[in-house]
């Protein structure tokens, strides 16, 4: 219920603002909805949303997998930490735009370049979070596993992984929002489809209803994925914890 209310307030504010500033600058909700329906009917909306989602899924999976592995290694192995740290600091502070432009220059205006660029932008965050998580592992439980001669994989799965789970969830959460933001820039700069491309086109034509139609559809998809996938997953991971108030 409160969610519906907050949605209604947003809609009302938008409508009033559009009445005050005029349709030309801020189209009213029905105008945007009409643009959305046109795009949906032609199939372009779903095609572009689908393309963007596929890029998000690939880049996110790639960055999370690499990030967890590298972060764990850097947290466990001193040498890996020493070797990786300068790279990590460089990547953490490199603007997303630089990575995307360089990727397109070096790998061409290709799908691989786009996905790699998005993944590289997200990677350092995952690494840093997982490295902290690995450093915070409970040495006492490690000793327990060693004393009972637990096989490596079993110890990792039952002793280490549950301790890393909150860190993985945190990395996934912040990483996903980062990917949502960057994917549109990558599409704007070098892809012939996707929400970012459409928004770029709409911007050049000053077609504000189309621009808003794509932005809002995208926001809606993000919200649905966050509520239906990310939040239940986080709850499942922490089911053994006493519930916070």
């Amino acid at each position: 219920m409160p969610r519906l209310l907050s949605f209604a307030i947003l809609l009302a504010t938008w409508w009033i603002a559009s009445l005050l500033t005029g349709e030309a600058k801020l189209p009213s909700p029905p105008t945007v909805l009409a643009a959305m329906i046109v795009e949906a009917k032609s199939g372009a909306l779903f095609l572009n949303l689908g393309a963007t989602l596929a890029r998000v899924a690939l880049a996110f999976t790639l960055a999370m997998t690499l990030g967890v592995v590298i972060g764990y290694l850097m947290g466990r192995v001193r040498l890996a930490d020493r070797l990786g740290d300068p790279w990590l600091i460089l990547l953490l502070n490199l603007p997303a735009l630089v990575v995307i432009v360089l990727a397109y220059i070096w790998a061409g205006l290709t799908e691989v370049a786009a996905i790699a660029a998005i993944a590289i932008n997200k990677l350092p965050n995952a690494v840093v979070t997982l490295r902290e998580g690995t450093r915070a592992l409970d040495a006492a439980l490690d000793e327990m596993a060693t004393a009972f001669a637990l096989p490596r994989w079993r110890a990792f799965r039952h002793v280490v992984l549950p301790q890393l789970a909150p860190y993985i969830a945190a990395a996934a959460r912040s990483g996903l929002s980062l990917v949502w933001k960057i994917v549109l820039v990558a599409e704007l700069l070098g892809r012939p489809n996707g929400v970012g491309f459409e928004i770029g086109t709409a911007f050049q034509l000053f077609d504000i209803p189309l621009l808003l139609a794509y932005s809002l559809s995208f926001a809606a998809v993000v919200l649905v994925i966050e509520t239906l996938l990310v939040q239940p997953f986080e709850q499942r991971l922490s089911r053994w914890r006493p519930r916070a108030a």
């Binding site: 006492a140 000793e143 327990m144 001669a149 039952h158 549950p162 053994w240």
Partner: peptide
């Protein structure tokens, strides 16, 4: 030799 150990603190896995 198989070792069974009881540490001073129980050292149980809280998530199991």
């Amino acid at each position: 030799a198989r070792i069974g150990i009881v540490f001073q603190e129980p050292r149980l896995l809280p998530w199991r």
